[in-house]
Design a protein around this nucleic acid. Structure first.
Length: 580
RNA sequence: GCGCCUGUAGCUCAGCUGGAUAGAGCAACUGCCUUCUAAGCAGUGGGUCAGGAGUUCGAAUCUCUUCAGGCGCGCCA
């Protein structure tokens, strides 16, 4: 319908004196014909006259009056009216207006899906938390956000692959290994525990599990505690070296056991959170610098050959000028070890080589300073930095009984994602994480998310769904002979549902907009508005005591409302409730 | 100091490719359950859209600037 209107408008604009084809196109592109905010302004609205007025230097009101006459002559619409500063409001014929209901009832769970993504190949990398401890509530937000934009992009016709990058190489894993070993032999250490080791309870349980089938025994425990540095960073590094030297076999066993155990728990938590991944990428698969054929060596060599990386002060640096980064960045330290950044460069090269159109990275907002250097590395490796889309997710502050819950991985004091899911359920948690734009601070109020009160929007929406569900059930019990899919409303016999019909017709646009802007919260706000219209309708109209004809119309319409709510919730990875 | 984000009702937030009277929930006050789920509905009050300047027929929305808050600026990860 909107396409038809736009065509008519285009013909009208072209017919104006002295307007070139280019100008017509410019006006059409800049203007928008859309479903009106509100039924008072007709079913559809276009601002084309105001856009044309500024581009073509004409009077918007006069233009609107002319377009009004022009469109009315076509007799395609019930009414066309110029209004306000130059809007054109269009009222459709009854059948065109209510046709959305048939579309929904027919499309069912497909209503709202589209093909605007054009099969674009998109990779989303998210969470990617270091496997040194359980996921906490901070990771939860990025997890849901990445998962849901993946679902939304898929629903709008993109090909999506979701990936978790596991930092299973490097120093932090050594620290993890050392922490587990030290916990196992704790009794022999006279209370000694390095300041920079991980201290969470999970370290001890991993150790306990490990010694069920293994023996950890060092001949000379005291030897690796001698002459340790007073600097905590150096101290832990020394302990790592000593432990490896004392018994390399044990070291390797503990390391792989700990890693596996933590990765397994991360995967479990994500599964319980209804967040799924298509692939898990190990940093270790990028290989070592010492292996000249590894991916990490290849990337650095390519950069060097192309003159984008160079040696200075004993280190290898990447030239990051192309992205406007403040300074060049080190890839290989002067002691020959690769930096974390070097792995990331190789990892992004790997992603680019896999041939995606877009690479979306979901990062914690504290990493924003990192964007430019990654962009620079993509450019330096001969690709376009525009492929990379970094979405920053701000931290979520957790509030319990009005107080902020503090968190720190090092000391092991944190509220884990698992705790959160156990406390309020995965669905409510997902909902509240998504309830605000991802790049803004979120205050997550646990007590509110758990509460039975009306301020809990999650239940407000679920309640709307459950109410319709039970209404449909009762209707079928009362009228076993009547098919629910009756198109009575098309005849316009019952008009109290018009607000609802108008609102659900907006849903596909909401989904498209949230896909284009990568903003899932738009769907939440839309669902809240739709639920509100429904609850209001429900209070004013006692459905099951209406005449049979009306009842059919209403149930037909409410089924479409329920389907829309269900589709919206499913898109967010939240199960609609049938009963509350 | 530089960079990014934010400032909208008492509180929590929508609205931001410029468009019709700036919206919602909570809190406050007033009503609505012998009828389909009251985890609901209806109503009232509440705003210099942080301040200032600019662009425009039109600015919460764009530009500049001031103020306030958060975060980031390692040969850490």
């Amino acid at each position: 319908m909107i396409e038809t209107i736009n065509k008519n408008i285009e013909i009208f604009i072209s017919s104006l004196d002295g307007v070139s084809n280019d100008l017509v196109k410019a006006v059409i592109n800049k203007s928008s014909t859309s479903i009106s905010e509100n039924l008072d302004n007709g079913h559809l609205t276009t601002n084309v006259c105001m856009v044309a007025a500024s581009t073509l230097k004409l009077n918007p009101k006069e233009l609107a009056d002319n377009l009004e006459k022009n469109l009315n002559k076509l007799e395609l619409y019930k009414e066309v009216k110029a209004a306000g500063p130059g809007f054109i409001n269009i009222t459709l014929h009854r059948k065109d207006f209510s046709s959305v209901l048939c579309r929904i009832i027919e499309a069912k769970e497909k209503f709202g899906k589209s093909n605007i993504g054009n099969n674009r190949k998109i990779q989303i990398e998210f969470v990617s938390a270091n496997p040194t401890g359980p996921l906490h509530v901070g990771h939860g937000r990025g997890a849901v956000y990445g998962d849901v934009i993946g679902r939304i992009l898929k629903a709008t016709g993109s090909f999506v692959e979701k990936e978790y990058y596991i930092n299973d190489a490097g120093r932090q894993i050594d620290i993890l290994t050392a922490s587990v070993i030290l916990k196992i032999i704790q009794k022999e250490l006279n209370g000694f525990f390095p300041q920079n080791a991980y201290k969470g309870e999970y370290i001890e349980s991993i150790g306990k599990e490990f010694i069920i089938n293994n023996i950890v025994k060092y001949d000379d425990v005291g030897s690796f505690l001698k002459d340790l540095s007073s600097d905590p960073e150096e101290e832990i590094d020394q302990i790592i070296v000593n432990l490896k030297r004392l018994d390399e076999k044990i070291w390797k066993l503990v390391k792989s056991f700990s890693l596996e155990s933590i990765i397994k728990s991360i995967k479990n938590d994500l599964k319980d959170f209804n967040v799924d991944f298509d692939s898990w990428f190990n940093e270790s698969s990028l290989g070592e610098l010492s292996d000249s054929s590894s991916q990490i060596s290849n990337s650095i060599n390519k950069l060097k050959i192309d003159g984008m990386a160079y040696e200075k002060d004993g280190a290898v640096w990447l030239n990051t000028d192309s992205s406007g980064d403040d300074k060049h960045r080190v890839l290989v330290r002067d002691d020959g070890r690769a930096t974390y950044f070097a792995s990331d460069v190789a990892y992004h090269k790997n992603k680019v080589d896999r041939g995606y159109d877009d690479l979306i990275n979901v990062w914690g907002a504290d990493h924003h300073g990192y964007i430019k250097r990654i962009e620079a590395s993509i450019e330096a490796l001969g690709s376009n930095k525009k492929k990379l889309i970094v979405k920053l997710v701000q931290f979520a502050n957790l509030f319990k009984k009005g107080k902020k819950v503090k968190m720190s991985t090092r000391t092991g004091e944190f509220f884990t994602l698992k705790d959160l899911i156990e406390e309020i359920g995965a669905d409510a948690a997902r909902f509240y994480y998504l309830s605000k734009q991802a790049d803004q601070h979120l205050d997550f109020d646990l007590d509110l998310a758990k509460s039975d009160s009306k301020e809990n929007i999650f239940y407000y929406i679920q309640y709307a769904h459950a109410r319709i569900f039970s209404l449909e059930k009762k209707y079928k019990e009362m009228n076993p002979d009547l098919d629910i899919n009756v198109e009575a409303i098309e005849e316009g016999l019952y008009k109290k549902c018009d607000n609802l019909i108008h609102e659900i017709s907006k849903y596909p646009n909401v989904v498209n907009k949230s896909a284009v802007t990568l903003q899932p919260h738009l769907i939440i706000f839309y669902l809240r508005d739709l639920s509100q219209l429904f609850h209001s309708f429900y209070n004013d109209n006692h459905v099951l005591s209406e005449s049979k004809d009306n009842m059919q119309s209403i149930v037909y319409c409410l089924s479409a409302v329920r389907q829309t709510i269900a589709n919206g919730l499913n898109l967010l990875g939240i199960k609609p409730m049938q009963k509350m």
